[in-house]
Simulated scan of single mutants.
Amino acid sequence: MSTVTSPSFAPGQDPMLRRRRTPLVALVGVAAVALGVAAAVCYGAGIGGWVLMLVMAAFLYLVGAFAVVNRIEGRRAARDRTWSTLIASAFILALVPLVSVVWTLISKGAERFDANFFSTSLNNIGARDPDGGAVHAIIGTLEQVAIAAAITIPLGVAAAIYIVEYGRGKFTTLIRFFVDVMTGIPSIVAGLFILSFWVLLVSPIYNNGQPQFSGFAAALALSVLMLPTIVRSTEEMLRLVPAPLREGAYALGVPKWKTILRVVIPTALPGIITGIMLSIARAAGETAPVLLVAGGTAAVNINPFNNNQSSLSLFVFQQASDASRFAPPRAWTAALTLVALVLILTVVAKLFARRNRISR
């Protein structure tokens, strides 16, 4: 009887590691050739600039890399390498705009990122005055977003809890439908709604019959924009909570309301906070509602319920359209400040959610 002997390998050596690998120098060579050919075609024939050259070089590299890897490792490895390259390229393309925005904000916003900008307002600042800051806009943004969050977060989370845990039938479907409709409402429509309802109808009641602009009216408009985002994100996070967690609490005799407060919400809290921060970021960057119902001002107004109030987004809009040569640097610094505020709030919220999760 004949026996079949298996090939012998060195001790500890995986047989899969013995297959041929494409050397890195070959891929680098393919990239160099692709870039050279693309440059010769684009600049030699004068048919395009560096953008077309990079696109053509990327296409030629994919074709050349596929041919080389297919020759050395086989068709399956060549397809895998091609798709890996496409995925990496998509990631880089998605990252380029973000890096560009951050770099532009930092490079142009650093010019006025000083103590004067964060300690003064534009009150009594002329077109030829290089000073003047945005403390009035920072105060307005913080107050308006805080009031909007205080109104919207409990309402949005409660609506999501009702939809997921209690809602049944047509009423729940109607709520979800209106939330979806509100998601697509333009910000200027929300501002017009608060202008026609609160500023023109309600504010004259307590202001001797005269309409009154205020930061609170801007907060109401921002609440309209924040609500659908909070409801939809919270609803999705609550639906991701495993059913056995609820069933285990019910089996121990825990009431439903306490199960929601002590089990369901803490489990979904990180995702809920992420949705809340997305809504806050959107509200902080809105300009049209603040312009329509708060009016804007160059002086500090710490009372959100009386007189005009500004915000960082409105400050950026006004300074970007100002004819003064000192206005654009203020606009860039205000934009950088707005992004930094949102980043700080997001980091603090994430740390809070992480601490809450660990403490459980």
Rank of each mutant, 00 (worst) to 15 (best):
A221G: 14
L222D: 11
L225F: 02
M226G: 02
T229R: 05
I230W: 06
I230H: 07
V231P: 03
V231A: 00
V231S: 00
R232L: 08
R232K: 15
S233V: 14
T234V: 10
E235N: 05
E236M: 10
L238H: 05
R239V: 07
R239D: 10
P242A: 03
P244N: 12
P244K: 11
P244G: 09
R246H: 06
G248D: 14
G248I: 14
A249C: 12
Y250S: 15
Y250V: 13
A251T: 15
A251G: 15
L252D: 08
V254C: 10
W257C: 07
T259L: 13
I260C: 14
I260L: 15
L261I: 12
R262F: 12
V263I: 14
V263G: 04
I265G: 09
P266G: 06
T267E: 07
P270F: 05
P270D: 10
G271A: 02
G271H: 03
I272W: 06
T274R: 03
G275E: 02
I276L: 12
I276S: 09
L278V: 08
I280M: 08
I280C: 13
A281F: 01
R282F: 06
G285K: 08
E286N: 04
L291H: 12
V293Q: 12
A294N: 07
G295T: 02
G296S: 00
T297S: 04
T297F: 01
A298D: 02
A298R: 12
N301W: 06
I302A: 14
I302Y: 09
P304D: 11
N306L: 13
N308T: 11
S311M: 07
S313T: 09
F315V: 02
F315P: 05
F317T: 00
Q318V: 13
A320C: 00
